[in-house]
Design a protein around this nucleic acid. Structure first.
Lengths: 348, 348
DNA sequence: GGAGAGCTTCGAAAAGTTTTCGATAATTGC
DNA sequence: GCAATTATCGAAAACTTTTCGAAGCTCTCC
């Protein structure tokens, strides 16, 4: 823009704006003894010349806050690595923090204390993992112009909140169709919170695939609580103790799937001979399970990276194509699901 | 403190410290071209005169950098949560970063680029998880007065580097003694890198316990590579294919233990009936394994918290009692190790 | 064992920024 | 209309940071 000489200094701007260096300095520092018209003119010139101060790359890096509610798990770990990768590529630092979950509703209308802290911290942007925020929180963040991107939002994606996820519905369908193609008809679903958007999508995919072939889903074949191992254990136990137990279970995440496998083993049922299991996420635990878990892969690292890039785009004032993007899921076939009936020959 | 004339400027300090104004400026800005002694003297004078700068910067939070080399795993996750807890309690922010492992030796004598970045980032302190740093790296950090605490250092703890770990030797002994008390005599050890300090300690504990009862450890009963699932799989496979295979295996970490269990299952051996396994760490994977893993618990969250607190102590100039502290390990008995011979009745 | 390459340390001077203070103009009070 | 006050601005002073070169040191390679 200003090819006269090297860097754009106050003097450059002052000359171009027809004022003194002192005046430009005052504009930059928000002093009162500058007339509105002069101030406006100087600010125009500052922007046109792209004045960046003495140190264009100050020692102080920009930061993006990555927060989560609850505990870290194998799922978070993958996302975090993607976030770090993208952060490093973009030259921003990642500040990690654990935030209290669901603020109780009795302080409705006011943003949670930690949200106020977050705003005060002057981050370039924030990324939340599977987080749930109140309307007041969102309003406060919006007022403060702090860009926020939620990964796999706990609530259904709102139009006024940017989020990144994966094709949960398609993934749920793919997993279920895989089991159906293997000949299973009595298939159960064990998933996370009923209010959780990604659980709803996965379950809907499950139901759609079942409906499409006219397979019935008894009430007891659905069990929802949290995305935890213990939920797989509890839900699996319940389902496997039914008089007419399912021959396959689709788990809402890998941890649940491993819990289901344990519930089966505790009853002397073999995986996959007596029960086929399909998980969701394709985290480390899927590869370390025995047998290795057939699962729906979410590109978690990519999701983390996209979240950061989107947040930085918002921070830069660039428009984003969509307030919610979903990356494609892939069915990864391993050893935990086999054709129905194939095993019963060997078993009985 | 200095009521002679008006404000305390760089020149005031420079005169009092017997250096140039430029040097004082460099100290303030954390430049590298100031010797440690000069830096210390100037900082003393700065503090004594209560230099506050021309414009006191808006209070931005102190940061502590938490870095790791390689990948995050269930072990890191626990440590990270402890670090975050302690960071929040102390009011410092945690900046998480992944750093390239072992700088190749061809640039010996110079600190790695990421170490220079770390120094330039002006953290209050840094904490590394199972990291390995070159002498040049350490020297550079020391020169820059950036306090560093390593958690479970990969190298043997040096006197000039502060570190936090757990009683690996005692833990290794406890695990082995447990197996010995269960009647096992043919016990294998599968662990991490031979150069790794914590691996060495655990293995020494293993050997000591074996020696104490006169149990022999054939060469093939030791397998060292990395602390990964695949290493448990590979090492376990090797050991279980021996003509005189062990009846129990002590794994250097939980992930290895799960890999060993898989290697056993692949050979039709049942856990714990045909092979007892003991792990180390007590991470999530120990509780989710099937059967649940008997393991040596490291207080990982506490270790992370202690590391942060120690780093902040160093940053505050307070002396630390010891350059290396070890927190106590505990044997957690679950279902993966049973008395030897008890099973062979049922099995054969 | 010494020439020289490379690194560290430091300050003088240059470059850049902010504040002070006085000049001038515009506005207000009476 | 005139004095008093206020608003605006820049020259110069005050202050800080960076650049660059000198001096000393270490290490290497004949």
């Amino acid at each position: 823009m200003s090819p006269l000489k090297g860097r754009v200094t106050l003097a450059t701007v002052a000359g171009s704006a027809g004022v003194s260096v002192a005046t430009v300095s005052k504009v930059l520092n928000g002093r009162s003894d500058v007339s509105p018209s002069t101030r406006a003119r100087v600010q125009d010139v500052l922007e046109k010349h792209g004045y960046v101060g003495r140190r264009p790359e100050p020692v102080q890096h920009e930061t993006v806050e990555l927060f989560y509610q609850g505990v870290l798990n194998s799922y978070s770990v993958e996302v975090i690595q993607g976030v770090l990768d993208a952060g490093e590529a973009a030259g921003v630092e990642i500040v990690l923090s654990s935030r209290p979950p669901h603020p109780s509703r009795h302080s409705a209308g006011r943003a949670a204390p930690w949200v106020r802290d977050l705003i005060a911290s002057r981050r370039r942007a924030a990324v939340g993992i599977t987080s749930e925020l109140s309307d007041a929180d969102l309003a406060a963040l919006s007022r403060a112009r702090l860009p926020l991107v939620i990964i796999d939002p706990a609530d259904v994606p709102q139009p006024d909140i940017t989020s990144v996820g994966s094709t949960n519905f398609a993934g749920g369908m793919a997993a279920t169709q895989h089991l159906l193609e293997l000949g299973h008809r009595r298939i159960g679903y064990i998933g996370g919170p009923p209010t959780s958007a990604c659980n709803q999508a996965r379950m809907s995919g499950f139901r759609s695939a079942m409906d499409a072939v006219g397979a019935e889903v008894p009430k007891d074949y659905i069990w929802l609580n949290n995305f935890l191992y213990d939920d797989g254990l509890a839900g699996g136990s319940m389902m496997l103790d039914l008089p007419d137990r399912p021959t396959a279970i689709f788990a809402g995440c890998d941890e649940i799937a491993v819990g289901v496998m344990e519930a089966a083993r505790a009853r002397g049922l073999r995986i996959p001979d007596d029960l086929s299991v399909v998980g969701f996420d394709d985290t480390q635990v899927a590869r370390h399970a025995s047998p290795q878990l057939t699962t729906v892969k979410q590109p978690l690292r990519e999701i983390g990276a996209v979240a950061v890039r989107t947040a930085l785009q918002l921070a830069a004032g660039e428009p984003v194509a969509s307030h919610h993007v979903e990356l494609a899921t892939t069915l990864i076939v391993r050893g935990s699901a086999v054709p129905h009936g194939l095993s019963s020959v060997a078993a009985s």
